[in-house]
Amino acid sequence: MKDRQIYVFWRWPYEMPASAVWFVSATCAALFGYYGNFGFRFLLLASIPMYLLSLIRFVQGASLLNFKARLQSIPDLNMSLDKLIKLHQAYPGKTYIGHGFEWGQEQTQLYYDLRSRDDSVNHPGEVYMFFRRLFGMSSKFQPDDKMHLHGIGFKEERPQYINVTERQQHAVYSGSTGTGKGRKATIDIVGALVRNEPCIIADPKSDDVTLDVIYATMKKFNREKYLYYFSPSHPSSSVRLDLLNSYGSLAQVATRIVNIMPPQKDETFKQFAWRAIFAIVQALTLMGEKLTLVKVRECVQQDMSYLVKRAGAYYFSKFEETQEIAKSVANQPVSSKAADLVVTTYYAQLESKYPSKEMESLFGIYGQDQRPPVSG
């Protein structure tokens, strides 16, 4: 379409009935010429340009109907993973962003005309759309979606690329369900994997198609071992996150655990819970054990004498003067008697020479202060 020339696509395709009239006339002329004595050669020769005019009119009408149909629904774009990878590899330094066309003044004029017209004059008719979907020329899955931005392009959409350095650092894909947001994100992810870029993907909806494409792409490049997948709903195939592996101080660990507990109206209970968990993680660390939620929960569910006995036996075994008591404590069953022995022994024999804030914090939660009375 030339500059300042308007494409009147909203009109009725009068070329189609004209094509039919020319076709019927040409057929009648050919039949008369073949079966009648009205100038055999003349009528047959006359039918040739008539057929040609019919074909020209049909092509013109079909072109208009095809343009209207593409405003309603475009063919489904089916693409294999191998083809998608080749598109990303086609131009080094560029990334494939999808199929499309260059938007110019012509498309702007068409879009303005389209939006200013009633939808009924832009529709080619349900019968025509039915046959297009039947032959795979329009989408069979979403025939009612408006695809006018794609249809305005006239020509078949081609792969579009941009320089990798010009990619948006932040992008948002918006649209209703089924409009292709997930597939667009998948295209970008495959491109990043082809360029061997690290990817961190958060997918709360758990799109299985995207995950399968990611795994298949990495497998084609022999990098599937670098795929780490986390999903609480798929524990058998998911990696596990250790929430207590990295921390600056044990107080941070206690705070993390308390924050995932059900909310409490009484702030006093929350403070006591924090002190109890802090004492537990201190004791576990003192014994050289790795902190896990399972171990912390085990200590919380047990009577506090359980942890006092274990920590006491471990701590006493480090010093020569209390090694025998450590064996005695270790051999005793879990009870307040064993825990009281630990507290008494610590304050009587170790507090002055080998003090331990961890043990004293644990004793404070245990609630038994067995300090020997101070003589004065």
Rank of each mutant, 00 (worst) to 15 (best):
A185I: 13
N222M: 05
Y215W: 10
V213D: 03
R133N: 05
M137K: 13
H123K: 06
K225A: 12
K146R: 13
R195A: 03
H234Q: 11
G175L: 11
I200C: 00
G182R: 03
I200D: 04
Q169D: 10
K146N: 11
L149M: 15
I152G: 02
F131E: 01
G191S: 01
G175Y: 10
P204R: 02
C199D: 00
F131Y: 13
S138G: 07
M137W: 09
P124F: 04
A216Q: 13
K181W: 07
M218A: 06
K184C: 13
V213Y: 04
A192L: 09
P232T: 08
I200A: 07
I201V: 14
D144H: 12
G191M: 02
D212Y: 04
G180P: 06
L134T: 08
H234T: 06
H150D: 09
F230A: 03
G151W: 01
F230G: 02
E126L: 09
T217D: 01
L227A: 05
F221A: 14
V164H: 03
P235F: 11
P232S: 12
R195I: 04
V194Q: 00
K184R: 14
M147W: 00
S120N: 08
V239H: 11
S233C: 12
K155V: 11
S238I: 00
Q168G: 08
R195P: 01
F141T: 15
T217C: 00
T186Q: 05
R133C: 02
I162Y: 06
S238W: 02
P235K: 12
K155Y: 10
R133Y: 01
E224A: 09
Q142H: 14
H148L: 10
K220T: 12
P143I: 05
S120C: 04
K155L: 13
T210K: 09
D119K: 15
M129K: 05
Q160C: 08
H170P: 00
G153V: 00
K140L: 13
F141N: 15
T186F: 03
D208N: 08
G136K: 06
E126S: 14
K140R: 15
D208M: 08
M137L: 15
K146T: 07
D212N: 08
S236F: 09
Y226R: 08
K140S: 13
I152S: 00
I162Q: 10
S238M: 06
N196L: 07
R133P: 02
F141E: 14
N122R: 15
Y173P: 04
T210H: 02
T179I: 10
S116P: 00
D207K: 07
P204F: 07
K225V: 05
F141Q: 14
N196V: 04
H170A: 03
H234S: 06
Y173W: 07
L211I: 10
T186D: 01
V172Y: 10
G178E: 08
F135T: 08
D119S: 15
G125M: 02
R183W: 07
T179H: 07
S116K: 12
M137C: 09
A171F: 11
V190Y: 01
V209M: 07
D145F: 14
R183S: 08
A171S: 14
I200L: 08
K181T: 12
E166K: 14
T210I: 03
T186G: 09
Q168T: 05
P204G: 01
F154A: 09
K146L: 09
G191N: 01
T179Y: 09
L134W: 11
V194C: 01
Y161F: 15
D207Q: 10
